[in-house]
Design a protein around this nucleic acid. Sequence first.
DNA 1: ATGTAACTGTGATGCGGTTCATAATTCCTT
DNA 2: AAGGAATTATGAACCGCATCACAGTTACAT
Lengths: 237, 237
Amino acid sequence: MYKNICSCDICNHKLCTKKVSIFSSLSPEQLAKVANLIIHKEYQKGDLIVMEGESMDSLVIINEGQVKAFRNTQDGREQILYIFSEGDFFGERNLLRDQASTYNVKALEKTHVCLIHKRDFQVLVKDFPDIALKVMEELCQRLDRLEHTVETMGTGTVEARVSSVLLEFADKYGKAHPKGIMIELPLSREGIAHYIGLTRETVSRKMSMLQDEGILEMLGNKKVLLLDRAALERNLE
Amino acid sequence: MYKNICSCDICNHKLCTKKVSIFSSLSPEQLAKVANLIIHKEYQKGDLIVMEGESMDSLVIINEGQVKAFRNTQDGREQILYIFSEGDFFGERNLLRDQASTYNVKALEKTHVCLIHKRDFQVLVKDFPDIALKVMEELCQRLDRLEHTVETMGTGTVEARVSSVLLEFADKYGKAHPKGIMIELPLSREGIAHYIGLTRETVSRKMSMLQDEGILEMLGNKKVLLLDRAALERNLE
DNA sequence: ATGTAACTGTGATGCGGTTCATAATTCCTT
DNA sequence: AAGGAATTATGAACCGCATCACAGTTACAT
C-alpha cells in the first residue's frame, strides 16, 4: 500500500507541521521535535490510502494534494463525506478511540502526506494539551459542515444542493478573477453528485441551467468561473 | 426564558454529574466540587430552551426528559439534527469557541437540565484534561451518526431511512419485550419526517407497510413494538 | 499532434415521493 | 367517561429526479 517514502531532506519534514492548524500553538523548537516524528508518503491519483474497516496506526496529514473520504453502499453507490486538502488531517478518531476506519480514503490527485504514529501522537497530546483543543476545534467545524449538509439534503431543493456545494468549493478552492471567482473543481460531475446525493445527469443539468442563467461559466470539465455569487446564495433559500 | 430554578436539596446537584459520561473520570470529591457549580432549570413540553443565533453562556446537560435540536429553513421547513436525552449535553461548541448557537433546542417533554457556566467549564477543562477527551469522544460519536445520516440520505431508499431511524430509536429507547422490542417514540410521525427529511405522509405510509409485513406493530401513536429487528437491518441496503 | 478513453450533455420515459384533500383514530383535558 | 383538538391514515393527481440511451466533448498519453 505505501508506495514512495519521501526522503525529503529539503523540507526536513517541517512543511506539514507549519501548514497544520493543530500544531499552531507550538514554538519553533517544539515544531522541530514534532517534525522528527513524521514519516512522509506519496500517493498517485486514484490510490486508495485507507480502506473502510482497516485499522489505522497513524494520523494522516495532507501536505500536498487532495483526497476524498467516502463510503460504498452494498449496491455500489458511493457517498463522499469529506474532501481533505492541504493542511487537513484524518484518522484522528482511530487514534483516540481504538476503532477501525469508518470510511475509504482515495487520492484525487498526486498527494503527499505526513504520518504521525499513534503512540507519538498520544504523547504529543499529553505534552501539549492545546493540540487536543485544536483537534476539537476541527471536529466542531466538521460537525458544522455535516449539520449543514444534512439540513440541505433534508429540506433543500436540488438547486440548493448544487448551489451549496459550488459555494463551498468557491470558498475553499476559489481564486479571485476579474469577472468573478475562478474555481478549480476537486471533483468531476459524478464526484459532485456522490457528494450531495444526486446523479451525474442531474448535476450536469443543474449546472447547465446555472450557466444559462448567467450565474456561472463552465470552462472545460474542471474549472468553473463563478460570475454571480449572490445569486447562488439566494438559491440556498 | 428560565422558568423554575430547582432548589433540589435532595440530590445535592449530584444526579446530573453522575449520569454524564464527560465527568466519568472524576473522583467522588471532584464530582462534588463540580456539582456545586451546577444550576438546575426545568422546562415544560414545547418550551424553547435555546434559539438559533442566540449566544449561550452555559453547557446544558439533560438530567431528565428529552429535547430536539433543529433548524428552520426560510420557507418554514424544519430539520431535526439531534435528539438529546438523559445524560446528553449541548452548547459545548459555544463555550470552546465564541459562537452563537447554530440550532434551536426545544423540550419534547417536561425536561430538567443542569447548567455549568462557561467560565466554570473552562476552569474544569483545564484542571481535568480528561474532560476534554470525553467531550471529544462525544463529538466523535456525533460525527459518526451524522456521517451515517448523510450516507443514508444521499444513497439510501426511503425504506432505508425509516428503518434506520427506527433502529436508532430501538437502540436508544427500546425496552425488551416478550414479542420483540418496545419502543417509546420520542417524536411524532411529523417529527420523524423532519428528522430524516421526508413528509409526514410518507413516514405514515412506510410504517404502515412495515406493519403489514409483520416487521412491527404500532400501538397508538407513541409506541412501536418492533417484532423483527433483522428485517429492518436488511432494509438498510 | 493525434487518437482514444474517460467524462459530460441531453432527450425520453417511468417511478416514487410530495402535495392536497379528507376521513379516521388517538390522546388529552375536564 | 366524554368531547374536542391534535395526530395519523389513506387516496388521487402531479411533478421532479432517476434511469436508460446515446451523442458530444474533453483530457490525457503516446
